[in-house]
């Protein structure tokens, strides 16, 4: 069990839909005993996501709000991210599939190693940060903290988790602008290589799959009743 993972393939959606799909996968996993799932996506239009506990009236976020860039509160922790020129992934599994994920830092390190391996395939040399910084900036990419993915000391991938009973979930963002990429390369091509990185590092097989009817239904409900609403996004 746990060796064959489901892939929800790369697609671009709006901020509310993206967050609603992720939470639906997380909540349905235990209920329907779904396989571990890896999903890659991007944000159309570009948007900002903020961590579960972050304040929605922070002055840094307000600068973007003035420019009419929408924002959404995640159900995971961590700092704010501008989702533009990047790829987002989400990984959901049971802690029974991956007991090593019980430890927050170990899980983060393993997943980041998979990303580094994947990026290597496209000629991008990144590594785990050895900096001992504490995450004290509003924006996630402001500076690297321990075990973030860096390229020449610049943070290029960060992550945040949610845990409920035996369900594990990690969100992550990989920055892929012209400064970071070694050449002009299609996002789908990057995702293909990241998948290889995950397969090797986690010793799993990732098979193309689809969301179940239940996940789709729940994601629609979550979008409408939670993520598209101010009650949730301005909660703090």
């Amino acid at each position: 069990m746990g060796k064959e993972w489901r892939l929800i393939n790369f697609q671009a959606s709006d901020a509310y839909t993206n967050m609603a799909i992720d939470e639906a996968i997380f909540l349905m996993r235990e209920k329907l005993s779904l396989p571990p799932t890896l999903r890659f996506y991007s944000w159309q239009p570009p948007a900002i996501s903020i961590g579960y506990f972050q304040k929605a009236n922070d002055s840094l976020l307000n600068k973007y709000k003035i420019k009419k860039i929408i924002f959404v509160r995640r159900f995971t922790g961590g700092g704010a991210i501008l989702h533009k020129d990047e790829i987002t992934y989400s990984l959901t599994c049971s802690l029974d599939h991956f007991p090593l994920f019980k430890d927050v830092i170990k899980a983060q390190r393993i997943i980041h190693r998979a990303i580094i391996l994947g990026l290597k395939n496209i000629g991008l040399n990144a590594k785990l940060s050895e900096k001992e910084n504490k995450p004290d900036d509003y924006f996630c990419f402001a500076k690297p903290t321990s075990f973030d993915v860096v390229k020449e000391e610049k943070k290029i991938a960060g992550s945040a988790q949610r845990r409920k009973n035996k369900s594990f979930f990690q969100h992550g963002s990989i920055l892929l602008n012209n400064e970071v990429l070694p050449r002009n390369i299609d996002k789908k091509e990057i995702v293909k290589n990241l998948i290889i990185g995950f397969e090797r590092e986690l010793k799993i097989r990732i098979l193309p799959g689809e969301l179940t009817k239940e996940e789709i239904e729940l994601s629609r409900k979550l979008k409408e009743e939670k993520y598209a609403r101010d009650e949730w996004n301005y909660k703090k």
Binding site: G77, P135, R162, N165
Partner: peptide
């Protein structure tokens, strides 16, 4: 780093989430 607890008077259910807690980058129910 953060704790989120219910308010006085709220009902809680056995086995269900009554709050959340955030450590560095992870939110726990």
């Amino acid at each position: 780093v953060y704790v989120e607890l219910p308010s006085k008077g709220e009902k809680v259910t056995k086995g269900s989430s009554f709050g959340t807690i955030e450590s560095v980058k992870a939110v726990f129910d």
